[in-house]
Amino acid sequence: MRAEKHNKKKRKGLKIFGILILLLVLGFGAYAFSIYRSLSDAVDTMHEPIDRKTRNIAFNNKEPFSVLMLGVDEREGDKGRSDTMIVMTVNPEKNSVKMLSIPRDTRTEIVGRGTQDKINHAYAFGGVEMSMDTVENFLDIPIDYYMKVNMEGFKDIVDALGGITVNNTIDFTQDGHHFPVGEISLDGDQALSYVRMRKEDPQGDFGRQNRQRQIIQGVMEKGVSFGSITKFDDVFVALGDNVKTNITFDEMKDIQKHYKSAASNIDQMKIEGSGTSIGGIYYYAVPETEKQRVQTELKTHLGK
């Protein structure tokens, strides 16, 4: 009887964990399950409201919504910058998720400062709120939620999952770790080095973005398989310490209930541009026609 009750709780936790997978995707969102109350406590620790007006999404009506994922390097005495910026739009009617990585050097208006600068500087200037406002203005779509991941601590999440597997397309060495071409297994330290390499990649920041997506998907796949994971407490601690979001636990449950099938169909988008130097500073310049193309695709997916 006790074993049956424990298994029931575990299955419930696994179901809730699907929410986090959909969102972190988060990927970068969440990867935990096990006992329901423990998961609820972890999500409560992750929950961090913001001072910003957002839409009220009717999840029971399966309304499309968007999430901005920020990968932030936070060091002592330094607020840090959002070196990873990924926008996800989720549409359950289309049964799909669109995932756009925004190059960190993209030149755009920083909303709230009235200046043109690199888009990832918005976080350093005004935190999550200014990042959401700036991305919302750049893409001309509503940004409903955010999920912020401390990249230094992301390795703890990977380790708590027992490592992940990715398919590497370029041979390189970073931070003393060698990454050969092909399917490779990564622990937390290796995963962090894997996503940080940029200079040796002929695709530059786009190659780095692709590796970021690989890590996210690797986490998702490992999370879904959870058969080999036993240290649930480690996963909860890693999440609570390193992930913050304005998504509540109740909202996550609603998303799991009405949106979970969309996570199986992820469309990775790319925004084209070119490097340019202004005042001796490197920027990634996106032509207006390209920006409009991406805006239209995302608006259509959100039903706008």
Rank of each mutant, 00 (worst) to 15 (best):
M85I: 14
V72L: 08
F33K: 06
S66F: 01
N61C: 13
F65P: 03
I16D: 04
V87R: 00
D140R: 10
N120L: 06
D41I: 06
K94Y: 07
S38K: 11
I19T: 13
T89P: 07
I57G: 11
V90K: 00
L24W: 09
L139R: 08
V90H: 00
N60A: 15
V90C: 03
T106I: 00
M151I: 13
G127R: 07
E152W: 11
E93A: 11
T89M: 10
D144V: 05
D73H: 07
F33S: 10
D51C: 12
N120H: 11
A32M: 12
K15P: 01
Y145S: 02
E129M: 08
D159W: 09
K15S: 13
T134V: 11
G127E: 12
V87P: 01
E129F: 12
V43Q: 04
G27T: 07
V43P: 03
R52D: 09
Y146A: 03
Y123A: 07
I119Y: 04
N137R: 13
F154L: 14
E93S: 12
G114K: 01
F28A: 09
N91P: 07
T134A: 09
T108Y: 09
V97I: 15
P92Q: 03
D156E: 10
H121G: 06
I21L: 14
L20F: 15
K155F: 08
V158T: 05
V111D: 06
L22F: 07
N56E: 15
M99V: 15
K15L: 15
A42T: 14
I110T: 05
D117H: 14
V135S: 05
L70Q: 05
K155M: 10
G27W: 00
G18Q: 05
F154H: 01
F33E: 04
D73Y: 10
D105Q: 07
R81P: 01
D44K: 14
G153D: 01
M99I: 14
R55Q: 12
K98E: 06
I102W: 03
H121I: 11
R52H: 10
L23P: 00
H121Y: 07
A30F: 15
M130P: 05
I35M: 11
M132A: 04
V43M: 14
V87Q: 00
Q116R: 08
Q116D: 12
H47W: 10
R113N: 12
E129K: 13
F65R: 02
T89Y: 12
F33I: 11
